[in-house]
Amino acid sequence: MALKTWKELPIGCVVFEPGSASEYHTGSWRSQRPVWDDAKCIKCGICYVFCPEGCVQQGEDGFFKADMNYCKGCGICAHECWPRAIKMVEEG
């Protein structure tokens, strides 16, 4: 995205696009990724609740998945998952 010139800046540098930080993909920070074993998942949603990125979402089938564009690989979801349905796997 081209940087704005001074003339193009909004008055007072107000940001009018809520949530526009999502343009930036923090997934590149990751050195390990969570992998779900749906067979063990009890659909409790702990992974969703505890994700600091807010990037774990429940699919229509009720199972959870992380958006890899944003997941930083912190491992909280795997650590907190009671039935141990999530494993952290090294990025290749």
Binding site: Y24, T26, W29, C55, G73
Partner: peptide
């Protein structure tokens, strides 16, 4: 939103 720069 996602995309914030907090530490992992």
């Amino acid at each position: 939103s996602c995309g914030h720069r907090a530490c992992s």
